[in-house]
Amino acid sequence: MTLPDFEVRFVDKVDAVPSALWDCCFAPPLEGRWWYESLEAAGLDDQFRFFYAILCRDGREVGLAPLFLMDVPIELVMPPALLPTLRLLGRVFPSLLRQRTLFVGSPCADEGTVGFLPGIDRRAALLCFQDALEARAAALGTSMLVWKDMPSGMDEDFAWLAGRRRLFPLVSFPGTEARLPSPRKEDYFAAMKASRRHLFRKKLRRSAQAVKVSVEVVQAPGGEVLDEIFELFWQTYEKAETKFERLNRRFFELLAERTASHFILLREAEGGDLIAFMLCFAVGGRLINKFIGIDYHRPKEWLLYFRLWEAALDWALPRGFTTIQSGQTGYAPKIEMGHALVPLTNHCRHRHPLMHRLYAAIARTVGWHTLDEDLARFLKAHPDATPGA
């Protein structure tokens, strides 16, 4: 096939990308320019370096890929069973334990996105991006290049690309999404499996008996409320087993200024203490459940996660949202509450052929069942849910 002539240029700032390109390539229901501006301004330079690849044809900008550079601890991406072997190898090859990686995507977006103007040959564009990114990775002294958390709708394109450039697929943590069939709460419950519906309602009743809460949805919370929010976020972050990024209060302050951001706050009715929150982004017909925080010092019997989800549901339904996207990890309660699992894949290349073959062999052993215990239990009960089954 004859491929169109493209070229790629790299820029270091969000505002170096034309606004029209952001608007076209990252329109709702995606997190748009405002998301990348917030990341860039949050002071996360100790973890990430952000930049952007612009695809051009005949001097016109026709595509956009957000990028970031990160030194990735190996335990974030490899199955626990393989870590002892890799740590032994790391004594001989220290770079195995912390890979400097050039990512296409965003550190905490729910799926990777590469945006193109209508009519652009996507495969030819991906090939041009790949060649430019390989050259950029070499210039940066980067071992790995990863297209992060790409949706299944691009699998065939990446299989085509892998046949022309050295890439291997690595199964990623799946995303989660709850579909809202109508503005009626009864229809949401009716779409759930009967056993899950019964269990969810039972937990809501038990929680209501254990604690009375008030619910408030706010935009642009003030400094004192933001302090409360971030304190709960940090408590939840510290409790998490999987930590890819370490966010700061400044990031939340920047997000609070965005019109898409809505904070769902649960307070104990008696005393008014903040006991849970959810930061949501309203983008088109999708509500993105982005960050949560829960006061884990409270009794487990309060079942605050389920009350928080109900509050989000009660806010989303009358406003016409058709889906709630709830991100990766924490699968057990999400599955209970009617979320579907959304397959995502990392497409990877190591600069050194021997290490590339080693990582490709390891990647073939990785699946949902190796990434997360909740997923392993779910797949044991529902083997037909395994990707490719």
Rank of each mutant, 00 (worst) to 15 (best):
P4Y: 04
D5H: 02
R9A: 04
V14A: 12
V14D: 00
W34C: 03
W35K: 08
S38V: 05
A42T: 12
G43M: 03
L44V: 10
F50Q: 12
A53R: 10
L55F: 12
C56W: 06
G59V: 06
G63H: 09
L64K: 00
P66E: 02
F68H: 08
D71T: 10
P84Q: 13
L88T: 13
L88V: 15
L89I: 01
F93Q: 02
L97I: 07
R98I: 01
Q99H: 07
L102P: 01
S106C: 15
E111R: 12
T113S: 10
P118T: 02
R123G: 05
F129I: 00
D131G: 03
A132I: 02
A132V: 03
A139F: 09
K148C: 13
W160F: 14
L161I: 11
R165G: 00
R166A: 15
L167N: 00
L170T: 00
L170H: 02
L170Q: 06
R179H: 11
S182G: 01
P183T: 05
R184V: 08
E186K: 10
K193D: 10
R206M: 12
R206V: 03
V211G: 00
S214W: 05
V217N: 06
V218M: 05
G223M: 03
E228C: 08
I229M: 06
W234I: 03
A240S: 14
A240F: 09
A240P: 05
K243H: 10
A256S: 08
E257A: 15
R258L: 11
H262I: 03
I264Y: 11
L266I: 11
R267L: 09
R267A: 10
I275T: 10
A276W: 14
A282G: 08
G285N: 09
N289M: 09
K290P: 01
K290C: 03
I292M: 12
H297K: 09
A316C: 09
G320N: 02
T322V: 09
T323P: 06
I324Q: 08
G330T: 12
A332H: 07
P333C: 02
G338F: 13
G338S: 13
L341S: 08
P343V: 12
H347C: 10
R351V: 07
M355I: 11
A363F: 06
T365P: 05
G367A: 07
H369F: 06
E373I: 06
A376E: 10
A381H: 07
P383H: 15
P383V: 14
P383Y: 12
A385R: 13
T386N: 01
P387Q: 11
A389T: 05
